[in-house]
Amino acid sequence: MRITLRQLQVFQTVCEQRSYSRAAELLALTQPAVSQQIRQLEDVLDHRLFEYVGKKLYRTDAADYLLASTADVFQRFDVLDMQLSELRGTLQGEIRIAAESSAKYLLPHLLAAFQRQHANIYPILNVFNRTQTIRRLNENRDDLVIMTDVPSDLDLDFMPFLSNPIVAVVQAGHLLTQHTGEVPLKALQQFTLLRRENGSGTRKACEAFFHQKHIHFENVVEFNSYEAQREGVSAGLGIAFLPRYCVYRELRDGSLVELPIKELPIVRSWCLVHPRNRHLSPAAQAFENFIVQQRQIVSQIAAKFEV
């Protein structure tokens, strides 16, 4: 098939940007040049790759198949580059890591410890909510993914490596902090719940917990980031269920308080995930080995976040 690597690069960029003009800008090409590359690909494949619905650009089924193959092609070149570097006696290259947003507080510390052992490996970290992370897994976009609650309907290899406790937090001086002893879970229902957006893994875990415990909040305010959610609690807007890792500083300085509730924390595990049919690059394999073999270092990093 008369397909060039440049055509695949243009195609992949259009997929990522969902726009011919933005792809052209990133690739330092004109929009007609991008359109021509896509038309040439379509002629070779005898399939349309994109179609407009209104003003939005959507991939066709053929494009989905090609995108998966394109990711595999470029990943194999990355592996070749790293294998050649191994022959030269140095392990070097990039690792593309996608992580659920709950992991973004801990993961930079893990990457720093890893890079102290592998100075020539450069991580590229992108943070997404759960829905976006699963989409990237389907598209085979990353070397490794860090997430909780690994979907069972995908063909994945995964390894749990660290707990991610979710706790209920309130502003210091909140009415619920005046309880002596444990706070009844039902007592939270009279207050406003500050929750994450639809598609968040933390929201999914909390909603399953509320359903199991028959807890219902009448008043809800929604945020699309932990930072905004945390600020909402600090401002006295309501209660939030948050990963302890993202509020450890506020819990230490006393500006936020973790409520002592018998049924909490909600404990989930972060997992290192990749598609089962994906051949890990030497750099990605080195990071997986680090997580497996350096348990003491991982535990020491996690201990820094304890309150």
Rank of each mutant, 00 (worst) to 15 (best):
A205C: 04
P260W: 09
L188M: 05
R249Q: 13
V221D: 07
A205P: 02
Q178C: 11
V183W: 12
E231R: 09
V257E: 09
K262G: 00
G254Y: 06
G201D: 05
L176E: 00
R268G: 12
Y226A: 01
E197N: 09
V169H: 01
S200P: 06
Q212N: 13
E182I: 04
R278Q: 14
E263I: 01
L176S: 08
I215M: 10
K213P: 00
S200N: 07
E207G: 00
G173R: 01
Y226F: 14
Y226S: 05
V267K: 10
G254A: 06
R230I: 07
Q212D: 08
E182D: 15
R278S: 13
A286T: 07
H216M: 10
R252Y: 07
C206P: 00
Q178I: 12
R230Y: 05
A208F: 08
G254W: 04
K204M: 13
K262Q: 10
V183Q: 08
R278W: 07
L272W: 13
C206G: 02
P260G: 11
G236C: 10
L256F: 01
L162I: 13
L194S: 03
K204H: 13
Q229L: 06
V183D: 02
N164D: 12
P184T: 10
E207W: 12
P260R: 10
N198F: 12
N198G: 05
G236D: 11
E207H: 14
T202W: 05
Q190Y: 04
V170Q: 13
E288G: 15
G199I: 03
I266E: 00
L188F: 03
L185V: 04
S200C: 11
Q190C: 06
L272Y: 09
L251E: 02
R196T: 07
R249M: 12
V267I: 14
A168T: 10
Q178F: 14
L194D: 04
A240N: 11
H211Q: 15
N224W: 00
E207L: 12
L280A: 09
F241I: 08
S281K: 07
A172L: 06
A240R: 05
R278H: 12
P243L: 02
A286Y: 06
F210L: 14
R196E: 15
V221Y: 09
K262V: 03
G232L: 01
S163V: 07
V267R: 09
R276L: 01
H274C: 14
